[in-house]
Protein backbone atom coordinates (compact mmCIF):
# COMPACT_ATOMS: atom_id res chain seq x y z
CA UNK A 1 0.00 0.00 0.00
CA UNK A 2 1.39 3.31 -1.04
CA UNK A 3 1.48 5.68 1.86
CA UNK A 4 2.42 9.24 1.18
CA UNK A 5 3.63 11.29 4.10
CA UNK A 6 1.68 14.46 4.55
CA UNK A 7 4.72 16.15 6.03
CA UNK A 8 6.69 15.65 2.87
CA UNK A 9 3.94 17.22 0.87
CA UNK A 10 3.84 20.20 3.12
CA UNK A 11 7.48 20.85 2.24
CA UNK A 12 7.04 20.03 -1.40
CA UNK A 13 3.90 22.15 -1.48
CA UNK A 14 2.87 20.72 -4.81
CA UNK A 15 2.04 17.06 -4.57
CA UNK A 16 2.99 15.04 -7.58
CA UNK A 17 0.03 14.03 -9.66
CA UNK A 18 1.75 12.47 -12.61
CA UNK A 19 4.35 10.02 -11.56
CA UNK A 20 7.64 11.21 -13.00
CA UNK A 21 9.10 8.65 -15.32
CA UNK A 22 12.57 10.15 -15.16
CA UNK A 23 13.90 7.70 -12.64
CA UNK A 24 13.24 4.60 -14.65
CA UNK A 25 13.19 3.37 -18.14
CA UNK A 26 10.60 0.92 -19.20
CA UNK A 27 11.32 -1.88 -21.59
CA UNK A 28 8.08 -2.78 -23.26
CA UNK A 29 7.43 -6.45 -23.96
CA UNK A 30 7.32 -5.77 -27.67
CA UNK A 31 9.23 -3.02 -29.46
CA UNK A 32 6.08 -1.45 -30.74
CA UNK A 33 6.38 0.89 -33.70
CA UNK A 34 3.79 3.64 -33.37
CA UNK A 35 4.92 5.35 -36.56
CA UNK A 36 4.49 2.30 -38.73
CA UNK A 37 1.03 1.54 -37.36
CA UNK A 38 -0.17 5.09 -37.89
CA UNK A 39 1.34 5.04 -41.38
CA UNK A 40 -0.66 1.90 -42.12
CA UNK A 41 -3.83 3.64 -41.11
CA UNK A 42 -4.26 2.12 -37.66
CA UNK A 43 -5.94 4.83 -35.60
CA UNK A 44 -4.91 5.44 -31.98
CA UNK A 45 -8.25 4.16 -30.76
CA UNK A 46 -7.79 0.74 -32.33
CA UNK A 47 -5.35 -0.12 -29.58
CA UNK A 48 -6.12 2.58 -27.00
CA UNK A 49 -9.80 1.81 -27.13
CA UNK A 50 -10.83 4.14 -24.35
CA UNK A 51 -8.98 7.19 -25.60
CA UNK A 52 -12.17 8.89 -26.72
CA UNK A 53 -14.88 7.35 -24.63
CA UNK A 54 -13.29 5.78 -21.58
CA UNK A 55 -11.85 6.90 -18.32
CA UNK A 56 -8.47 5.61 -19.37
CA UNK A 57 -7.13 5.15 -22.90
CA UNK A 58 -6.09 1.60 -22.09
CA UNK A 59 -3.41 -0.65 -23.49
CA UNK A 60 -4.21 -3.36 -25.99
CA UNK A 61 -4.61 -6.98 -25.01
CA UNK A 62 -2.90 -9.57 -27.13
CA UNK A 63 -6.27 -10.28 -28.68
CA UNK A 64 -6.14 -6.86 -30.34
CA UNK A 65 -2.73 -7.62 -31.83
CA UNK A 66 -3.87 -11.02 -32.96
CA UNK A 67 -6.55 -9.58 -35.17
CA UNK A 68 -3.89 -8.38 -37.61
CA UNK A 69 -0.84 -10.37 -36.70
CA UNK A 70 -2.20 -13.87 -36.47
CA UNK A 71 -0.92 -14.55 -39.95
CA UNK A 72 2.60 -13.55 -40.82
CA UNK A 73 2.72 -9.90 -41.82
CA UNK A 74 6.42 -9.26 -41.44
CA UNK A 75 9.41 -11.40 -40.79
CA UNK A 76 10.30 -9.94 -37.40
CA UNK A 77 11.21 -11.11 -33.93
CA UNK A 78 8.76 -8.68 -32.44
CA UNK A 79 5.86 -10.10 -34.37
CA UNK A 80 6.95 -13.58 -33.38
CA UNK A 81 6.58 -12.55 -29.74
CA UNK A 82 2.97 -11.70 -30.39
CA UNK A 83 2.22 -15.02 -32.03
CA UNK A 84 3.95 -16.81 -29.15
CA UNK A 85 1.83 -14.92 -26.68
CA UNK A 86 -1.32 -15.84 -28.61
CA UNK A 87 -0.24 -19.44 -28.71
CA UNK A 88 0.45 -19.55 -24.97
CA UNK A 89 -2.71 -17.56 -24.25
CA UNK A 90 -0.80 -14.98 -22.30
CA UNK A 91 -1.27 -11.28 -22.32
CA UNK A 92 1.45 -8.80 -23.10
CA UNK A 93 2.59 -7.03 -19.96
CA UNK A 94 2.65 -3.51 -21.34
CA UNK A 95 4.08 -1.03 -18.91
CA UNK A 96 1.90 2.04 -18.61
CA UNK A 97 4.11 5.12 -18.76
CA UNK A 98 1.79 7.90 -17.78
CA UNK A 99 0.60 7.11 -14.31
CA UNK A 100 -2.03 9.01 -12.50
CA UNK A 101 -2.18 9.23 -8.75
CA UNK A 102 -5.05 7.09 -7.44
CA UNK A 103 -6.75 10.06 -5.80
CA UNK A 104 -7.27 11.90 -9.06
CA UNK A 105 -10.07 11.52 -11.52
CA UNK A 106 -8.93 12.04 -15.07
CA UNK A 107 -11.36 11.11 -17.78
CA UNK A 108 -10.21 10.76 -21.36
CA UNK A 109 -13.78 10.99 -22.50
CA UNK A 110 -14.18 14.34 -20.83
CA UNK A 111 -10.99 15.80 -22.25
CA UNK A 112 -10.89 14.25 -25.69
CA UNK A 113 -14.53 13.95 -26.69
CA UNK A 114 -16.21 16.66 -24.65
CA UNK A 115 -13.24 19.02 -24.35
CA UNK A 116 -11.94 18.46 -27.90
CA UNK A 117 -8.31 17.97 -26.93
CA UNK A 118 -5.83 16.22 -29.17
CA UNK A 119 -3.79 13.31 -27.89
CA UNK A 120 -0.69 15.32 -28.76
CA UNK A 121 -1.50 18.02 -26.25
CA UNK A 122 -0.65 15.75 -23.37
CA UNK A 123 1.15 12.79 -24.86
CA UNK A 124 3.35 14.54 -27.40
CA UNK A 125 3.98 13.32 -30.89
CA UNK A 126 4.01 9.63 -30.07
CA UNK A 127 2.84 8.95 -33.59
CA UNK A 128 6.28 9.78 -34.92
CA UNK A 129 8.11 7.24 -32.74
CA UNK A 130 9.31 4.08 -34.35
CA UNK A 131 10.44 2.51 -31.07
CA UNK A 132 8.31 2.46 -27.96
CA UNK A 133 8.86 5.47 -25.71
CA UNK A 134 10.83 4.53 -22.63
CA UNK A 135 9.79 7.55 -20.66
CA UNK A 136 6.53 9.46 -20.90
CA UNK A 137 6.62 11.56 -24.00
CA UNK A 138 5.34 14.68 -22.38
CA UNK A 139 5.44 18.27 -23.33
CA UNK A 140 4.83 19.60 -19.89
CA UNK A 141 7.26 22.20 -18.71
CA UNK A 142 9.55 20.94 -16.00
CA UNK A 143 8.42 18.32 -13.53
CA UNK A 144 4.97 16.96 -14.30
CA UNK A 145 2.59 17.40 -11.43
CA UNK A 146 -0.66 18.98 -10.41
CA UNK A 147 0.75 22.22 -11.73
CA UNK A 148 0.38 20.85 -15.22
CA UNK A 149 -3.30 20.19 -14.75
CA UNK A 150 -4.03 23.35 -12.90
CA UNK A 151 -2.22 25.40 -15.52
CA UNK A 152 -4.86 24.54 -18.05
CA UNK A 153 -7.71 24.47 -15.59
CA UNK A 154 -7.02 27.99 -14.40
CA UNK A 155 -6.39 29.44 -17.83
CA UNK A 156 -9.29 27.72 -19.45
CA UNK A 157 -12.28 29.88 -20.09
CA UNK A 158 -14.47 26.84 -20.18
CA UNK A 159 -16.72 26.86 -17.17
CA UNK A 160 -16.50 23.08 -17.13
CA UNK A 161 -12.81 23.15 -16.22
CA UNK A 162 -12.93 24.65 -12.77
CA UNK A 163 -9.99 24.73 -10.45
CA UNK A 164 -11.86 23.59 -7.35
CA UNK A 165 -9.93 20.67 -5.83
CA UNK A 166 -13.19 18.72 -5.69
CA UNK A 167 -13.39 18.68 -9.47
CA UNK A 168 -10.62 16.10 -9.73
CA UNK A 169 -9.66 14.83 -6.28
CA UNK A 170 -11.59 11.95 -4.78
Amino acid sequence: MFAFRPGVFLIALVPAVLWPGCSRKADQPVAFNHKLHIYNGVACTVCHVGAETGLRAGLPGVETCRRCHEDLLYESDEEAKIRLAVELDRDLDWIPLTRLAPFVLFSHNRHVTLGKFNCVTCHGDVASWSVPPRVPERNFHGRPGMADCIGCHQESHSRYAGSDCLFCHH
Binding site: F2, W19, R24, A26, D27, Q28, P29, V49, G50, T53, G54, L55, R56, A57, G58, L59, K81, A85, L92, D93, I95, P96, R99, L100, A101, P102, S107, H108
Partner: peptide
Protein backbone atom coordinates in the same frame (compact mmCIF):
# COMPACT_ATOMS: atom_id res chain seq x y z
CA UNK B 1 8.45 -11.11 -20.69
CA UNK B 2 10.80 -8.31 -19.67
CA UNK B 3 9.83 -5.47 -17.43
CA UNK B 4 8.02 -7.51 -14.83
CA UNK B 5 10.01 -6.32 -11.88
CA UNK B 6 9.43 -2.73 -12.86
CA UNK B 7 5.76 -3.47 -13.34
CA UNK B 8 5.55 -4.91 -9.86
CA UNK B 9 7.19 -1.86 -8.35
CA UNK B 10 4.79 0.38 -10.23
CA UNK B 11 1.86 -1.68 -9.11
CA UNK B 12 2.91 -1.28 -5.49
CA UNK B 13 3.30 2.47 -5.71
CA UNK B 14 0.57 3.58 -8.03
CA UNK B 15 -1.67 0.70 -8.90
CA UNK B 16 -2.62 1.26 -12.49
CA UNK B 17 -6.00 -0.22 -13.22
CA UNK B 18 -5.98 -2.05 -16.47
CA UNK B 19 -8.79 -1.41 -18.90
CA UNK B 20 -10.55 1.76 -19.79
CA UNK B 21 -12.96 1.98 -16.88
Amino acid sequence: IGGRLQAMVDEKIFPMPSGVG
